[in-house]
Simulated assay, not measured.
Amino acid sequence: MTFLMRPRGQGAELLFHYTSAAGLAGILDSGHLRLSTLDRMNDPRESGTYNFGWRQASPGPFDGERMASMTEEMNIALRRTTHLVSFTVEGTEESADGYFGRGFARARNWDQYGEKHRGAVLVFDRDRTLAAVSELSAGSYASGPVRYVDGSLQSLPDGGWLMFEESEYLEVGPAAMVERWRHDYRDQLFLTKNKDWESEDEFRILVWRNEHASIPIAGLLEGVILGEHHPVPERRVLGTRLARLGIDRLMIGIMEWRHGTPGCHNSLLPDGSFGFEFIDDGVDQNLAPARPIIC
């Protein structure tokens, strides 16, 4: 039974990643889902510079130039080594009408992240995805649902304030200081957004490393749902792209909105056909068909 037919809460936990038509092609052609850095996020709480206050190590006149230099180093260490990828999860309320609340059926997400319904949603098995991330990051990762709170990033839940301590900075250096902050303030810095984003039901995977990070997707995908305006030429080569990844059976569907109600069908091309091509494996000229499971 595909995830479309299962009641929510049954079967494997799923993660839904919205992307554009070009994003889908890039992910399938590379075989990897690439993580982004914090400065590419939409929430100003995350995309802006951390300008937290400083406590000087010694009394005396305030040294603004030194504070600015240390603030820049802390931002580089905290932000440029934090890579993340965002997903939507299933809503908790069942709907008797269409797929309202399902992770792949969010109209706002389709508009903002799915290229105004021209893109796609990649559906991942959560447990297999987290296992793959743990392996590629050597355990230097975190994951969890985002909580939505209106308030200053500097304001802590206990009423305190995030502050850079110059004495700690001088004693252990920025790298060790950042490591402690990731542990002590992980939820505050990386898993909290303003309430404007609450409808996204976001789940994040965070990886800490100096270079770019990406997740190999083969073996993790449960399905691909195309937007109702996904370009027909791209639909025609979807099977080819999947087959090149060694994926020959997958749940494929295309969204439809009937009077505003989300649904899914399997006529990928205007003539009602699936539109999957065959590929040449380049070895013995045998043709390997892509055999999708259609919703």
Rank of each mutant, 00 (worst) to 15 (best):
S86A: 07
F87T: 00
F87K: 01
T88A: 08
V89W: 06
V89F: 08
V89Y: 06
E90K: 01
T92Y: 07
E93V: 13
S95P: 00
S95Y: 00
S95F: 03
S95W: 05
D97A: 11
G98Y: 09
F100T: 05
R102H: 05
G103K: 00
G103P: 04
R106H: 03
R106K: 01
R106V: 01
A107M: 12
A107C: 08
A107E: 08
A107V: 10
R108D: 11
N109K: 07
N109D: 07
W110D: 00
D111E: 12
Q112Y: 11
Q112P: 08
Y113H: 02
G114V: 03
G114L: 05
G114M: 03
E115L: 05
E115W: 04
K116Y: 11
K116A: 13
H117I: 08
H117E: 09
H117M: 09
R118E: 00
G119P: 00
A120E: 00
A120L: 00
A120C: 02
A120T: 01
A120F: 01
V121W: 05
L122I: 02
L122D: 02
L122G: 01
V123G: 01
V123A: 04
F124K: 04
F124A: 06
D125L: 07
D127E: 09
R128A: 04
R128Q: 02
L130N: 01
L130P: 03
A131K: 02
A132M: 08
S134G: 14
S134Y: 10
E135A: 09
E135L: 07
E135W: 05
L136W: 07
S137G: 05
S140Q: 15
Y141Q: 13
S143P: 12
G144A: 09
G144I: 06
V146D: 11
V146R: 09
V146M: 10
R147C: 12
D150C: 11
G151Q: 10
S152K: 10
L153R: 14
Q154H: 13
Q154K: 13
Q154I: 15
S155D: 09
S155Q: 13
L156D: 11
L156V: 13
P157Q: 08
W161A: 15
W161N: 14
L162T: 14
M163H: 14
M163W: 15
F164W: 14
F164K: 12
E165G: 12
E165I: 13
E165N: 14
S167V: 11
S167I: 11
S167M: 12
E168C: 13
Y169S: 07
Y169G: 03
Y169F: 11
Y169L: 08
